[in-house]
Simulated scan of single mutants.
Amino acid sequence: MALVDYGASSSSSSEDEGSSNTALTEILGTLKRPALPTAAALLGPKKPKPEEFVDDVVDDPALHGGRIRSFKHERGNWATYVYVPASACAEQLEEFQAEAIAHLDPEVKLQANESLHLSLSRTVVLQYHQIDEFSRSLQTALNSSTGFTATLQGLRIYTNEERTRTFVSAPLDAAFAEKMAAILQPIDQVMLDYRLQQFYNPASFHVSLLWCVGDEEELLNSKLKELQELLEDQDTLSLGVHEVHLKCGKKDFTYKLR
């Protein structure tokens, strides 16, 4: 069938074309499809990002007792450290914490460390995709490490590197320093393999018990004898070194020692 009548005049052709267009528009109008559903209707509301991919966080020291981050919290960065939990003597240490806070108030506003542990690394930063591989490396490195039971002895005052916080800590009894150093060595090697900072040299093994904002080393050293007397009321502070933990953000991995 011919689509165009080439014998018609230009005037009649234009009129016919106008009539055809109008009819075509009416037909298409009756056949118009309903609007497609939106992506939100099909998939539901947009899910929030997993915690490891959330946008940058603005640090507010008022939300965590005045503490200031050592490094900026950025998307994908996970604060990471290796430690031994001080669970065997936790109850005794918590009693001391309460007594010490009351004893030094209002001269200095001490706060109790919630996580009582002996650190075996600095706090470093891992990317999310590195965590599992790093954990496996640490497990392999610690496979031949042997556990033991140690004790904490006395008190010592520390500050962080930025001198923005001061700590009252219970050092590891010097008699066990060599055994602890043997566990630290493979951990330091893993840090080196990942181009991360190794532990402090010389190593000073201790459990941080109390802290305050600012550099109060001189003041707390002047109160050290009084605090020592409070601690002496406690029995021997036993530290079971039978497992090592890796803390990455909210993730916690445990490695049993031989």
Rank of each mutant, 00 (worst) to 15 (best):
A2S: 15
V4S: 08
S12R: 14
D16F: 11
G18V: 09
G18C: 04
S20F: 06
N21R: 06
A23Q: 07
T30Q: 15
L31F: 12
L31W: 14
K32A: 13
P34H: 08
P34G: 11
P34E: 12
A35D: 03
L36A: 15
P37Q: 12
P37G: 10
P37W: 07
A40M: 05
K47D: 06
P48V: 00
E51H: 10
E51L: 15
E52L: 06
F53Q: 15
F53A: 15
V57K: 13
P61C: 08
P61N: 13
A62E: 13
L63I: 13
R67T: 02
F71P: 00
P85C: 05
C89P: 01
Q92F: 11
Q92P: 08
L93P: 00
E94A: 10
Q97R: 02
A98C: 07
A100V: 04
I101Y: 00
I101Q: 01
A102R: 07
H103F: 09
H103M: 12
E107D: 07
K109C: 04
L110S: 12
Q111A: 06
Q111Y: 04
A112F: 01
N113I: 15
E114Y: 04
S115I: 09
H117R: 09
H117Q: 09
S119I: 01
S119N: 06
S121H: 00
V125H: 10
V125I: 13
V125G: 08
Q127I: 03
Y128G: 02
E133D: 09
E133T: 07
F134I: 01
S135Q: 13
R136L: 05
Q139L: 12
Q139K: 14
N143P: 07
N143V: 14
S144Y: 11
S144P: 10
S144W: 12
S145F: 07
S145K: 09
S145Q: 14
G147W: 01
L152K: 00
L155R: 00
L155E: 01
R156L: 08
R156Y: 06
Y158Q: 07
E161R: 01
E162I: 01
R163Q: 01
R165G: 01
T166H: 02
D173E: 04
A175F: 11
A175E: 12
K179Q: 15
A182W: 06
I183V: 09
I183C: 03
Q185I: 03
Q185W: 12
P186G: 10
Q189H: 11
Y194F: 08
R195V: 02
R195C: 03
L196Q: 06
L196V: 05
Q197L: 10
Q197W: 07
Q198M: 15
Y200E: 15
A203P: 13
V207E: 03
V207M: 11
L209A: 01
C212A: 13
V213Y: 04
E216K: 11
E217F: 05
L219C: 10
L220S: 01
K223Y: 10
L224F: 10
K225Q: 10
E226H: 08
L230V: 06
L231A: 00
D233R: 14
Q234D: 05
T236V: 09
S238T: 09
S238C: 05
L239E: 02
L239A: 05
V241K: 01
H242R: 15
C248R: 03
T254H: 11
Y255S: 05
L257V: 06
R258L: 15
R258W: 11
